[in-house]
Every structure is written in structure tokens, then in C-alpha cells.
Design a protein around this nucleic acid. Structure first.
Length: 845
DNA sequence: GAGGTGGCGACCGAG
DNA sequence: TCGCCACCTC
């Protein structure tokens, strides 16, 4: 791209939902209401007089069944949660206790008993994935009826839906655009430049995060406490926030935060509008309530004041969005926020085996300030949670790849296998490996399809066609491919647009009719406008996919990449094709653009039998037979940033994330850690995660990685420990490649046997050895930890080092020991600062 | 205005 | 190590 500020946003147009519209016009008196008082015991027979919808719902479930089939499989608590329909209800549901089932069954129950139309139920989730999942599951119970639920979606999707209907009341024009994070930052950068603020010292990214934080707390510019507004850029924070909001209005745009914040404002300033929604929403349901932030809470509370039939489902142990402003307090305060609320606890776990459940419960017990739940399961103990150490991230990926292949051979469906990573950069290694193995996989989340440059460019073209006033889109593509329109010309266009208060495209028209531009530039711009006009004309007769192909072709955009000699050009062309393909299911261009502004991932390959790769965050609410949990290392998991920014609270949130990860598994949870990982391109030696120490020994099995180089492996379920690379290391690795002091120390220790020496078992060649060692070493030493032995790291044996001692580390140089924790030393290095390192990598200086 | 290069920060997580 | 951005030259 040129230096021109190219800002892209996603243009959306309101698409009338014909179905929901027509439903809403049904007079209330005709509703098939067969109301029952909540106190009344629910009859086991189906709703006595099911109306049309109810009948269809039941038919969709099981036509011939005399009983309400969807209720019969529920335990008493679940059933109570489904049938307590009137008044506020909080369902405290531990992992795997059938939370989603309760939510979906509750919705089916409301529909089946004819208490509300599908369009009168508001059901909110946090992630698109969760929304899709819920929709699918409701669909299996009530059939097509779920298609009539326009108000099932993420907070943001529903927020935008409401704003689109009442845009004029919050000062927006129809077809307003939604900025994503990228757009936001570009816009803020413009503002910072205009204000002469050094964006090195005060990065736009930081300002974006600050503003986002305010929005998460429901604060508009005027509400920001003076002291806080002053934090950014020497007191300009508040002013910049206000300026940013003004700029958004001028561009007819909102950011993600506004989708809720403006909604709150809309409701507060327009009681009649709020009243309309009160009448509309007979039942409100909220998934993952523990993750709501203040803005979401306020928004929800306003809406819930109507029917008061609000059902929130959550688990304080799974609160993992503190960084986004989530207030676990919301769930703790529910009963006072919603007077008369009923609380139902679900503690019976149906998902995981005993070992998995025990391991997860034990881990989460290390957190303070929990509501406290005791999950129990009636199933088998199953297999233990395994912990496997690998030499580096490559070996980790190989080992997991091998295990998955073995599972595949044994007949396990790949779609029931998931790899849950802490950070998305971990995914690449697995992708590489799976490509090599030819193993089908599906990345969920990750580097987002719609954030790729070529996709954003293509979308910008489509947005320009769709709307003549989308300045951000126009700016993005005016010189892509290169047309000789640079900063200077763009500034001219901007000046005209600002003076005449018209969109950029109109300004261009004015300019091309004057003599102000050089002839060449003028004809280029005129040609561009002519193209837009022609495409708009064609859009009336062509399908939107055909139009997209023509636009990409005639604009020269496809050609630009065809001519490109770089390695990734082919991939980009492929992505463009994929983009056109992904438009197919949509009715028209507007509908498509609306969709992608909120759903930044493509749900391609759904249903295909493939390994699921995703972050722990996006795995919440899902479950799989086998779950691989790689990267359990200090700094990565728990993530260093979480510890730095949030301290103990951050650690506890990380621990909850670990809990979420383990509890995704039904039958098998397999944790991995690598002793070496590349961070920012540099290889770092890492320590096994402290969470491994917190797993109960009796429910965990420690294994040696079998994915080592040169070792073929005997396949899953093979004889106990195969020969590992470590066992052969003396030959090929010991002397040449790995001759660091730490390595040699590890070697000598290995030769000394597991129980020899000062008990420094879990050290050296990192974790694999440590992990292996500790199974054997569990008889000696008794670290002050729960259930005896440590799984993977320190041994509790006295350190041979002492505080204040001068030491040397091959990577960090000289330093002084400031702390000792088992075999982990805290060292203040002269040059590298304070680090925690394994004792084995340290030499006395 | 286009294209090349060197320096620097990033890799936490959702919509 | 990679990708972005600022800066430089033509």
C-alpha cells in the first residue's frame, strides 16, 4: 500500500429479516399462550394446547413421543433450571454439567409450550462459535424453528441489530460501518498526528486499549473520571476519546464498543424504544454470565427490566475475560441485582472421566475467592491425564501429530480431537506438521481470514460499490492497484470533501470536473468513478458473487496479484476465490457485508472430519473426546503478560483458563510442555508451567515424548516408554549441537542416575527428563505440595546454590541469585535483568 | 509518487 | 524471525 492512510471498515446494510418482521406483526392476543405459573409443578405431558409453533416444535423433536422427550433426560436440577421460567434465574453450572443443554432445552421448552414466539426470545453468547453451537443444538430439538430466532447471537451481533433499527436516534445514518481493531488504530493514529502527539511515546494501540477499557465499563467521554482521562499523553486522554467519537460520527461509523454503549444510550434516552423491547422480549437468556463486563451488564439489565424473565448461566471458575473488562462480580451480585432471583446449581458432571475431573478440580482449588463448587461424576475414572515433556516446540508438534495419527488409525474421528493452545502463534507449528502428515485440520480463530490485506482490499471495493459514501473503503483502494494517486492527490480530495461536507467519492467527482488536477490523475479518477457507476448498474441484474468477480477483475486487482512475483501471491489469489465462495450462502451483498463485520472468521469446512485447532479462549463451551494441551510453560501458560499486568488476579485467570482447557476433554486430556521454545525468533529455554505442579499426582501420568527425531515410534498404545532422543543424545547431540554448560550438566546428571546427586531430577535437558525423572523420583523428597509428589519440575531437594551467590548462565551471562524455589532460581543478571531459570542451566561463577 | 531498505517492536485473549 | 513503518533516493 502507498503511504496514503488507507482505512478500511466493513460496510453493512440493514437487511430486513422478513420472517421476523412478519412474526412481530402478529397481535399479542393471538399468541399461543398457555401460561403456567412457575410455582406449579410441570406436567410431564406436552403442553396441553400447543399452538402452531408449539406443534411444529414438538414435531421437530420427536413426533410420536407421548412425553416431552427433551425433558426426560434431564436430572432434577437441570429440569428445574429448564422449567423455572418466570422471574430471574441464575444457574451456577460447573464445567460439563450440561449448561448448554439447559439453555437450549429451556428455549425449546419455551417454544414448545407456546409461551413465546422464536422472535421473542433474546439469547446472548460471547463468541460466534458459542452462538453457532447453540443454534445448532436448538435446531436439533426444534427444527427449522430456530431460523426464526433473530435475537440469538453474540452481544455485538444483537447490539448492531438494535442500532440498525434505530440508527437515527443515536445520530447515525443508515448503513453505518463497523470499525474493527485495525481501523480503530489507523483512525487514532490520524488523531494523534493531528494533535501533534508523538505516537512512539503514546502509541495508538495503547490509546485504543484505553478507550476500549472505558467503553467496556460503560463510560462515554463525558463519564470518564478526570484523573483517568489524564493518564494518556499528558492529560489528553479524555479529549482524544471525545475527538475519536466525533470522528466516528463524521464517518458514520461505530467501533465494537459502541455497539453496546450506543445501545445503552439509545435505551436511556428513548424510554419508548426500550419499552418496545420490553414488550418484545418475553424471555432473556445469557450464556457465560461470568464473562459479562459492565457495559454488557448495563445493557442487559435495561432489557431485562421488562419481562424480568432473565436466565443467566455461568461458572465463576471459567471466567477468562478479565482482560476485556469482565466482572466476575456480576455473577456474585446477581441476586441483589435481580431481586427475587432463584439460584440453581448444577454440579453433576456428565462430560469427563473421573481422572480428568479430579485433575481439573485439584488445579482450580489453588484459586482463592471462588464461589466453590464440588463437581462430581458418576462415570469411570477413565485414563489419567498425561503430561509429556518435549525437547522443543517442534518435537511437541511431532509427538502430538504422531498421537493423532495413531488415534486416527484406531478409528477415532478427527473432529473429536482438539488442540487447545494458549496463544495463536502456537498454531503454526501444528499446521506445518499436519500439512506434512497430510492430516486434515481446521484452525478456528487464529489469523483471521477477513483481516488479510487482499481480503480487506477486495471488501473495500465491494463496499465502495455498495455505498457511495464509504470514505474509509474508498481511501483504502483508491490507489490499489497503483494508479498514481498519492498522498498529495488524496489530500486535495479530502480538502474538497471537508469543505463541501460530502463523501470522498462526491469530492472526486467535483474535482474531476474542475481543472485543479493534472490531466493524467483526472482521467484516472474519472475512470475509477465510471467503474463504480457501472458496477452499481450491474449489481441490479447480476448475483453478488458474479458482481464480486467482475469487480475484482475489472478493477485490475486480480491482475495485480497475478503479476506479483512474490511467494504468497498464489495464496492471496486463492483467498480471493475463497472470499467469493464464502459469499454464496448470502442473499445479497449487503447481507454478506453485515455478516463479516461481526464474524471475522470463515466457518469453512464445518462438518468435515478434521482435527480442531483453536485457542483456549475460543474452546470455552466446547467439548471433545481427546484434548491436547501444548505449551504448558512458564511465561506462555501462565502467560507472562497476564502476570505482569494483573499480578495474582492474572495468575488466577490463567489457572481458570487451564481449568477450562482440561475440562473440555471427555475421555483423554494430554498436556505437553517443551523445554525450548522460540520467542521472537530466539530460542529460549523454558520452565515447565507451575500448573503442572498443581496437578494431583494420583490422577496424572507422566510420559516421555515419543516424537523425537529419528525415532519412528511404535504408535499410540505402544510399550511404555519408547527410546527417546534423550536416550541417544550422548551420540549425536551431546557433543556437537548442544554443548552448553547446562546441557553438559544435564548429561552428567543423567549418567548419574535418576536418584543420584542432589536430587536435581527435574532439570537439565529440560522438562522431558524432568517429567520422566519425577515419576521415578517420587519416593524421595517431600515437597510441601498437595498429594505428595510434583509432576514435572522442582523436587524440593535442597539447592546446591545459595542466595547472593554469583553465577553464570550461558545465555544471560553473569548474575546474582536473589531467590531459590526448588530447582528454580531467580537470578538478577547484570545485563539481562531478573530471570527465573532452572538450576541446571546455572554455573557457579 | 514509487520503490527500496533498515530499524524496531511483537507473540495473549473476542467481537 | 517476521512484518510494519519511517525514511531515503530516484
Amino acid at each position: 500500500m502507498s503511504g496514503a492512510l488507507a482505512i478500511a471498515v466493513i460496510e453493512c446494510h440493514f437487511v430486513l429479516d422478513r420472517e421476523s418482521r412478519s412474526r412481530e406483526t402478529v397481535p399479542l392476543t393471538q399468541l399461543p399462550l398457555s401460561r403456567r405459573h412457575p410455582a406449579e409443578p410441570a406436567p410431564d405431558s406436552p403442553s396441553p394446547r400447543p399452538g402452531g409453533i408449539a406443534a411444529r416444535a414438538l414435531a421437530g423433536a420427536a413426533p410420536a413421543a407421548p412425553e416431552t422427550p427433551y425433558l426426560s433426560g434431564l436430572n432434577p436440577e437441570q429440569r428445574a433450571a429448564v422449567e423455572t421460567l418466570e422471574g430471574p434465574l441464575l444457574v451456577l453450572a460447573g464445567a460439563g454439567t450440561g449448561k448448554t443443554r439447559v439453555l437450549t432445552t429451556r428455549i425449546a421448552h419455551i417454544l414448545a409450550t407456546g409461551r413465546a414466539y422464536p422472535s421473542q426470545i433474546l439469547a446472548v453468547t460471547f463468541t460466534n462459535k458459542a452462538a453457532r453451537e447453540m443454534k445448532d443444538r436448538i435446531g436439533t430439538m426444534v427444527g427449522d424453528l430456530v431460523e426464526g430466532m433473530p435475537w440469538l447471537g453474540t452481544f455485538h451481533a444483537i447490539g448492531v441489530r438494535i442500532l440498525r433499527r434505530h440508527h437515527e436516534l443515536v445520530g447515525l445514518k443508515s448503513g453505518f460501518t463497523i470499525l474493527d481493531t485495525d481501523d480503530q488504530i489507523r483512525l487514532l493514529k490520524q488523531l494523534l498526528t493531528a494533535e501533534n502527539i508523538d505516537d512512539k511515546r503514546w502509541p495508538a494501540r495503547l490509546l485504543a486499549a484505553t478507550i476500549d477499557g472505558w467503553k467496556n465499563r460503560g463510560l462515554s467521554p463525558k463519564d470518564v473520571p478526570a484523573g483517568e482521562g489524564a493518564v494518556f499523553a499528558n492529560g489528553k486522554g479524555g479529549t482524544l476519546y471525545a475527538a475519536y467519537q466525533a470522528r466516528l460520527k463524521a464517518l458514520n461509523a461505530v467501533d465494537f464498543g459502541d455497539l453496546l454503549l450506543e445501545g445503552i444510550r439509545l435505551f436511556r434516552e428513548n424510554p419508548d424504544v426500550l419499552a418496545e423491547y420490553h414488550r418484545k422480549f418475553k424471555y432473556l437468556l445469557v450464556d457465560e454470565y461470568q464473562d459479562t463486563n459492565v457495559a454488557q451488564y448495563l445493557w442487559l439489565r435495561l432489557l431485562a427490566q421488562g419481562s424480568k424473565n432473565v436466565c443467566c448461566v455461568g461458572d465463576d471458575d471459567q471466567s477468562i475475560y478479565g482482560w476485556r473488562g469482565a466482572e466476575v462480580d456480576n455473577i456474585l451480585r446477581f441476586e441483589s441485582d435481580f431481586p427475587g432471583a432463584a439460584v440453581i446449581r448444577l454440579e453433576r458432571n456428565y462430560r469427563s472421566t473421573g481422572h480428568i475431573l479430579a485433575a481439573a478440580s485439584h488445579l482450580i482449588a489453588h484459586n482463592e475467592g471462588r464461589l466453590g463448587k464440588t463437581l462430581f461424576s458418576e462415570g469411570d475414572d477413565g485414563e489419567r491425564v498425561t503430561v509429556t515433556g518435549a525437547w522443543d516446540s517442534g518435537e511437541e508438534a511431532r509427538a502430538i501429530g504422531d498421537e493423532i495419527e495413531a488415534l486416527q488409525r484406531a478409528g477415532h474421528p478427527l473432529s473429536q480431537i482438539a488442540i487447545l493452545v494458549r496463544a495463536s502463534f502456537q498454531m503454526r507449528e501444528f499446521e506445518d506438521r499436519f500439512v506434512t502428515l497430510g492430516l486434515p485440520y481446521r484452525v478456528i480463530g487464529g489469523p483471521r481470514f477477513y483481516e488479510r490485506a487482499e481480503i480487506r482490499d477486495a471488501l473495500a471495493y465491494l463496499r465502495c460499490v455498495n455505498s457511495g459514501s464509504d470514505d474509509l473503503a474508498f481511501e483504502r483502494i483508491v490507489n490499489v492497484p497503483k494508479r498514481g494517486i498519492g498522498d498529495a492527490t488524496l489530500k486535495q480530495i479530502h480538502d474538497v470533501a471537508r469543505a463541501a461536507r460530502v463523501p470522498l467519492q462526491d469530492a472526486v467527482r467535483v474535482l474531476t470536473e474542475s481543472e485543479e488536477l493534472k490531466p493524467k490523475v483526472r482521467s484516472t479518477l474519472r475512470g475509477l468513478l465510471d467503474m463504480f457507476a457501472r458496477w452499481r448498474e450491474q449489481s441490479r441484474v447480476l448475483s453478488h458473487t458474479e458482481l464480486a468477480e467482475i469487480v475484482l477483475d475489472e478493477s485490475g486487482y486480480t491482475e495485480m496479484w497475478q503479476k506479483d512475483r512474490s511467494a504468497e501471491a498464489a495464496g492471496r489469489l486463492e483467498n480471493l476465490k475463497e472470499l467469493v465462495r464464502s459469499m454464496e450462502p448470502f442473499e445479497n451483498l449487503g447481507g454478506f457485508l453485515e455478516h463479516i463485520s461481526l464474524v471475522m472468521d470463515v466457518d469453512n469446512g464445518a462438518g468435515e472430519d478434521a482435527v480442531q485447532v483453536m485457542t483456549l479462549h475460543s474452546a470455552k463451551g466446547l467439548e471433545f473426546d481427546t484434548v491436547f494441551l501444548p505449551g504448558w510453560e512458564e511465561g506462555l501458560f501462565p502467560h507472562q503478560r497476564a502476570l505482569d499486568d494483573q499480578g495474582k488476579a492474572g495468575l488466577e485467570e490463567e489457572r481458570r483458563l487451564a481449568y477450562v482447557g482440561i475440562t473440555r476433554a471427555r475421555a483423554s486430556a494430554r498436556i505437553y510442555f517443551a523445554s525450548n521454545r522460540r520467542i521472537h525468533g530466539l530460542w529460549n529455554s523454558t520452565l515447565p508451567s507451575r500448573f503442572l505442579d498443581e496437578l494431583p499426582d494420583s490422577h496424572v501420568k507422566v510420559e516421555e515424548s515419543r516424537g523425537g527425531m529419528g525415532w519412528g515410534g511404535s504408535g499410540y498404545g505402544g510399550s511404555s516408554y519408547g527410546e527417546s532422543r534423550f536416550d541417544r543424545a550422548g551420540g549425536s547431540f551431546g557433543s556437537s549441537s548442544y554443548s552448553t554448560p547446562g546441557w553438559q550438566r544435564a548429561q552428567s546428571q543423567r549418567e548419574g542416575g535418576f536418584n543420584a546427586g542432589a536430587g536435581n531430577v527435574g532439570a537439565g535437558r529440560g522438562g522431558a527428563r524432568g517429567a520422566h525423572g519425577s515419576t521415578h523420583g517420587s519416593t524421595h523428597g517431600s515437597p510441601p505440595l498437595i498429594e505428595g509428589t510434583l509432576v514435572a519440575s522442582s523436587t524440593g531437594a535442597p539447592s546446591t546454590f545459595s542466595r547472593g551467590e554469583r553465577v553464570f548462565h550461558v545465555k544471560f551471562g553473569y548474575g546474582e541469585i536473589t531467590g531459590i524455589d526448588g530447582n528454580k532460581l531467580t537470578v538478577q543478571f547484570d545485563k539481562a535483568g531478573e530471570k527465573r531459570v532452572l538450576e541446571t542451566f546455572i554455573e557457579k561463577a
